[in-house]
Design a protein around this nucleic acid. Structure first.
Lengths: 163, 163
DNA sequence: GGGCACCCTGTAGTTACCTTAGAGTCAAGA
DNA sequence: TCTTGACTCTAAGGTAACTACAGGGTGCCC
């Protein structure tokens, strides 16, 4: 193999999964790379840098669309970076709003939990009773619309990793 | 139409979308209802109560699997409600953990934002520079694995609603 | 009987990937 | 040389919890 990194090496450098790289390529976030004689993707330093940028933004919970926008700013610099600031401010707003929602949610859950401090006979479980109440004075929805994801998907490891 | 609520009426009672009800039926969360002569679904008070229960749990950000578990508890009551408490405690743990993650995230974003207080010439934008740094002393990932969703999907309204 | 709101089924799209199947490639060891 | 094992390829399907849409049928009022 002449030169260039294989996809697995790039994945290690940028700390992400191989499949994620191929996905970004399909999504147009990473340019189509050169290929080796055996049809392997070959990457250079520019790919490492670009992928690191993307992963860093993702670790800040930006969407791929937001990242696309930032990448465009990088490629065709305008007179000032006002739009970059604006994008970041908006994103900060999202995160802050979400924290507020989750805090209200946490309070509700704790209120609910307090209804049943110990393991009582199941039939009189106040929690189940309260949850089935349709009235407006019960537990209220804290969320504007529905907010997804206090549950993470923990990626199943490949068999090659653990075995 | 003899008696029973149509799906639209049920949706209004439980404050959810018609499609969501059909989805819950497919998922086995709601029992298959009776049908009218014209093949319309017909619901009774038990459906209203059960759907309200589900929606209330969803507004508390529980997964459908968790809700399924709670519904099972309701249907076949055991000696005590310890498992209900356990489920709720675990869910509270999820939410609390998520709040912590998002707070770290918010701090990082604000640190990043401070690098560029005004609209400077784009080429020297410190934010873009910092985001492309691969080094370990830059902005760090605050998230264990990836945490989805500070962005909400806001459902597009149907044309019949706004027009 | 015309029009409108409502309902039906079935399929596909959303986000950001992860998983799997089935096959090819590469380098090293026996 | 052959084989083993790690790596790579493409294509398709799965995840969560719905939402959207196409193409039709039903119920009811005027």
């Amino acid at each position: 193999m002449a030169d260039g990194l294989t996809i697995g090496t790039l994945a290690k450098r940028a700390e992400c999964q191989v499949e994620t790289i191929r996905y970004y390529e399909r999504e147009g976030l990473l340019p189509v790379p050169a290929r080796s004689a055996g049809n392997y993707r070959l990457y250079g330093p520019a790919h490492v840098e670009r992928l690191s940028f993307i992963r860093r933004c993702r670790s800040l919970d930006m969407t791929l669309d937001e990242i696309r926008t930032l990448l465009n700013f990088r490629e065709s610099p305008a007179e000032n970076c006002g739009p970059v600031n604006a994008l970041l401010d908006e994103h900060i707003g999202h995160v802050a709003g979400r924290i507020g929602e989750l805090r209200r949610l946490e309070k509700q859950l704790k209120d609910l939990r307090r209804l049943c401090a110990s393991a009582k006979p199941d039939k009189s479980c106040e929690i189940l009773t309260e949850l089935s109440r349709g009235e407006k004075n019960g537990v209220q929805s804290a969320l504007s619309g529905h907010v997804p994801g206090s549950h993470h998907r923990q990626p199943k490891r490949r068999s090659t990793d653990s075995h």
